[in-house]
Design a protein around this nucleic acid. Structure first.
Lengths: 353, 353
DNA sequence: CTGTTAGCGCCTTCAG
DNA sequence: CTGAAGGCGCTAACAG
């Protein structure tokens, strides 16, 4: 086990500059008055010794770590990556660090991850459609500022939700409007609240044909979408549209249609959800519900920063984001968009300083 | 500014359990002998008080933070996200946290990011094709374990490189082998060492037709690939193949070909580099050089962990990863692969415990 | 303007 | 087996 070797401390520069550690601290933090001469001397020796303050020790007394803990279920696919990216941009703009932590569905692991955050972060950004409120309360002390994303129930904690139910209904209406009757659904994993809401929206929109075989469960991965697509393609009567609960499954599904010899959208329509960057590059372009995930991540971080800086403020407040329908060609009657970087422009325009 | 409220400390549980803090510490860390009775009492009150150790204070004396700092130039696109994901998986397997830090090309910013890592991480994973060795040496103390990825020159630091020059040559040979003569190149941004190596490989492979208009510079984004594609498509004589320095530019380029009315691969071939997940979903599937970025990230983290745990060990050692040619349909003569999840299986099979 | 003195929350000898 | 004391590196009163 490596023992951190010789790191120059504030005391070293104090000794070398022949002053007290207090003065060094004052100069380096720019607080309090210090004589011009000593100030120069301190700065100079600090530079010479390549002194870098120990943030850990600093935050112990400051009671601020300048870092946000971001707990995600997974880093797989573009959804969480994009969210992380948005949060990162917003964090950087505020001089905050990001401590990422994934908990692959395992509840024990998630608990450990949450607890180990104490003392290393100023607040928590929790995106976890699998964990319920009670679990959260049990593992995160009241005193830890936190923003819940897509968690079922607010429980007094501030949250940020996506109107997945409404989004699913919107998509279903669009599919019906462009003439589809036999609409199938590839659902997300069991126990995932987003998936549940989208499924609920599917049912609530009352598809013209209700066939229980038309709903097959996936796990948000392209592979599961591929498998589901094959299953659906083999049905008789075959659906004329497939609404996947996220874009990755839609992508896998389109692969399956190709292998099944079904042209999209001529023979069968495919729709997704999220509008992650890949949706644009699929061929045909994927019609989907846009969440602008990066912007969502940036928004969330901003709100959390607010909560941290002002304990009373927006505490307990909730907000819900409404996804927008993006029509490309995968469901017919669409037009292709020609802006590969549209996501980014949107993010930059709105969230980068 | 929020002041962290009432957090229960080790002293609180000591008082409540009517023992000394030393005993509490011993029990919670499982070191030293403690009477069964007191042990139970301590565990019980710790549970009752919902005590969670303050990791910051802990690491101050332990001299270990159990976190790795990962500095990336960007989180954009799938390349760095995948790398982050691989590192995350490997980190989790070792009980390590990941502190991510992006430095969008700005050197001042990067310096600040690097310095602010002291005292909060046990080691650094630096992926930064823009920063040179000198800069690195200037901002990272000798005592900080670090693994450099794709940095020019080793400078005594351990590193992990990708054989980009060889990879580019391999791709060029493949393009020539399947009959292309007028091969163009969309290069990566100036000052990026990966981009430079790939460009060097392009030239070294001695394309049959050397036309300086055939090399246009992009910035690794899809948008730049789109623009470059339009430029190239308008040339006379037009190239019969375009080798983009990364997959995202290739994706944008394929969009451009479509808009220019050029069928891929019939009228013109398009090749990429990296084999990020999106390469599989493009239509036609993108022929590219596979780096298995996630595995690379996992590998890097593992090596860094080794360096940290054993100061002398692999220090100074370097390693180079060789990318593999993946033939899909975008260059003709290929066959489509049908494994949407292949990346993951590879990662799981090799790096997940 | 500058130095001295307490701790932040925790771990770790060292006695008892 | 248990407690008291010192200190990790730094900041924040409080004196001079």
């Amino acid at each position: 086990m490596r023992t951190q070797v010789k790191a120059v401390t504030i005391r070293d520069v104090a000794r070398e500059a022949d002053v007290s550690v207090a003065s060094v601290s004052r100069v380096l933090n720019g607080v309090g008055r210090v004589g011009e001469a000593t100030k120069d001397r301190i700065l100079h020796t600090a530079e010479r010794l390549r002194y870098v303050p120990h943030e850990g020790a600093r935050s112990l007394i400051t009671r601020r770590t300048a870092t946000i803990g971001m707990v995600l279920p997974d880093l797989h696919g573009e959804f969480f990556s994009e969210m992380l990216r948005g949060a990162d941009v917003a964090a950087k703009a505020r001089g905050l660090h990001l401590l990422v932590s994934t908990s692959h569905g395992d509840s024990e692991e998630a608990a450990a991850a949450l607890r180990s955050m104490r003392g290393r972060v100023d607040g928590l950004l929790v995106m976890s459609p699998y964990l319920d409120q009670a679990f959260f309360d049990r593992n995160v002390p009241e005193s830890m500022p936190a923003l819940l994303m897509n968690a079922r129930g607010g429980g007094g904690r501030p949250f940020l939700n996506v109107a997945d139910f409404d989004g699913a209904v919107t998509m279903m209406r669009h599919l019906a409007a462009v003439g589809h009757r036999r609409i199938a659904h590839i659902a997300g994993p069991d126990g995932n609240s987003d998936a549940a809401e989208r499924l609920r929206g599917y049912y609530d929109a009352r598809p013209h044909v209700l066939d229980e075989r038309y709903v097959v469960r996936g796990d948000f991965t392209a592979a599961s979408g591929y498998a589901a697509g094959l299953t659906l393609a083999a049905l008789d009567p075959r659906p004329d549209a497939i609404f996947a609960a996220n874009d990755m499954m839609a992508a896998g599904c389109m692969d399956a249609m190709r292998d099944a010899g079904l042209a999209v959208p001529r023979a069968i329509a495919v729709a997704g959800y999220d509008d992650v960057p890949i949706a644009h590059f699929l061929q045909p372009g994927l019609t989907t519900m846009r969440i602008d995930v990066a912007a969502l991540g940036a928004l969330a971080l901003g709100r959390l920063a607010l909560i941290i800086d002002d304990a009373d403020g927006a505490a307990g407040a909730g907000e819900t984001i409404v996804p927008q329908l993006v029509i490309r060609e995968s469901c017919g009657h669409g037009r292709r968009d020609h802006q590969p970087a549209s996501h980014d422009d949107a993010l930059k325009g709105r969230y980068v300083e």
